[in-house]
């Protein structure tokens, strides 16, 4: 057992008789309250996980997964911007137009295989790095802004803070972005890592999303998402 847990357990064991003695024998309310406070603190320490995955490690894992996608995009010589679409299986897929860009697929179907055809349009289907991450129960029921804050600020520490505005397009402003991925094809198809995560989350809530633009400003980055609502 870690030292901190031993300390917390010791504190808890000490605080219980201390509280009882303060109340019954000494009849001293502030000391009794101190004992209760120590019990709360000890319980809080015992409930806290000692080893959580550092945000840097989560970021590194996602950045690592980008490299294999970059290789696929290089191999197929693809550089068109893709559409993040939520499928019937609850997962978000990226539909990359292979011929001319005719907009996102209109039907929300569970994709089978790498190629999806709809009318004259053909799409390459890829799974974005954050497609499984957005299914974690912690963000279920959250608003888009809360979910983005949890994902990008709390979990991955990609940015210091987030602001979401909606006016037809969804604009996400990130302060002090820390992710620096140099994969060029990935950026042109998926958008940057933070834009890809934002698009994934938005698609999961709304339906279909395209990273329309990314603007770098002083100490902040603005991601503009174009959205299409699916039934």
């Amino acid at each position: 057992m870690e030292k901190l847990y031993i300390f917390a357990l010791g504190l808890l064991i000490f605080s219980i008789p201390f509280t009882i003695a303060s109340y019954i024998i000494l009849s001293n309310i502030p000391l009794t309250a101190l004992g209760i406070g120590l019990m709360i603190l000890a319980s809080s320490i015992l409930l806290t996980p000692l080893e959580s995955i550092p945000p840097r490690a989560i970021r590194a894992m996602l950045e690592g997964s980008i490299l294999s996608l970059e290789a696929i995009l290089e191999e197929f010589d693809i550089s068109r911007r893709g559409y993040y679409v939520r499928a019937d299986d609850g997962r978000v897929y990226l539909y990359v137009p292979l011929s001319e860009d005719g907009g996102p697929p209109t039907k929300r179907v569970e994709p089978s295989g790498l190629i999806h055809e709809e009318g004259d349009s053909r799409y390459l289907i890829l799974i974005p790095p954050a497609s499984e991450l957005i299914k974690i129960p912690e963000i279920s029921g959250m608003s888009l802004e809360s979910a983005l804050t949890y994902m990008l600020v709390d979990l991955m520490e990609v940015a210091d803070s987030i602001e979401v505005m909606s006016d037809g397009f969804i604009t996400v402003r990130l302060k002090n972005v820390k992710s620096h991925v140099t994969a060029g094809r990935f950026k042109s198809v998926f958008g940057s890592l933070e834009a890809s995560i934002a698009a994934c989350l938005t698609a999961n809530l709304i339906g279909a999303v395209k990273v329309s633009d990314e603007i770098l400003e002083e100490n902040s980055k603005v991601i503009i998402l174009e959205v299409w609502e699916h039934e």
């Binding site: 502030p30 309250a33 101190l34 406070g37 120590l38 709360i40 603190l41 809080s44 320490i45 806290t48």
Partner: peptide, 15 residues
């Protein structure tokens, strides 16, 4: 860790 430090600080100040 910061949470537990803040909580401990607040409790020891409140009393």
């Amino acid at each position: 860790l910061l949470f537990n430090i803040v909580l401990g600080g607040m409790i020891t100040l409140t009393v």
